[in-house]
Design a protein around this nucleic acid. Sequence first.
DNA 1: ATGGTAGCGCTGCTA
Length: 258
Amino acid sequence: MRLATWNVNSLKARLPRVEEWLGYAHPDVLCLQETKMADDAFPQLTFEALGYEGAHYGEGRWNGVAILSRVGLTDVRTGFGDLDDPYEGDARVLAARCGPLEAVSVYVPNGREVGTEFYDRKLAWLERLREWLDAEFSADSPLVVAGDFNVAPDDRDVWDPAAFDGATHVTEAERAALSALERWGLDDTFRRLYDDDGLYSYWDYRRGDFHQHRGMRIDLVYATRPAAEAARFATIDRNARKGKQPSDHAPVIVDFDL
DNA sequence: ATGGTAGCGCTGCTA
């Protein structure tokens, strides 16, 4: 079972590259973020022609999440259900059963600047995510929560911790929110397999950051213990960040013995 | 140099 997550920064702009990537990475499940489209624009038939069922949750210009699967796609759910969403109106959470596991595609709010209400609601959103997982799923069953978390779990996950002093994505409060998810029962599968620093999944389009190796690891594949213990291999496909019209994020791939 | 680039969609916002 190969699962991947990719913030594509507009599925309309990225569709040719996503099609090409599916052709050589051939994941069983792909969680997408920032599709930036409404549900009626989702290219269902394009993915069906490649052997994938698809579910999409999007409101239009911003945000938007999707799940593609070639191992079944049922029990599709959007948002936080009955719980209040601190970013109500944004499409940031989509869940589905895909073969042996439950898959959740998440696009965590950016937070903009520390001290703003956007940042405060980012923290509240991460807390709500934990509450929703606790209400809907069991940490004892195979579950993967994959997506753009807009938080770098520790200093190994940013190119220069000093450059992020006072910035979002690295604050103690954001990292504590990830720790709370881990205490609930989620493991960072990539970190379970590899200790190295400098393994990034996102590079700003500006200043030539990709070629200067100025990146962050903010795209995470979290899994409950029954799934995490079955993780055998992971990689970040930096080739997908090169060439013509790349997303600013690279896909993160995890292979499970499931 | 308080910068830079990309996407959406048509003006400025978001990241």
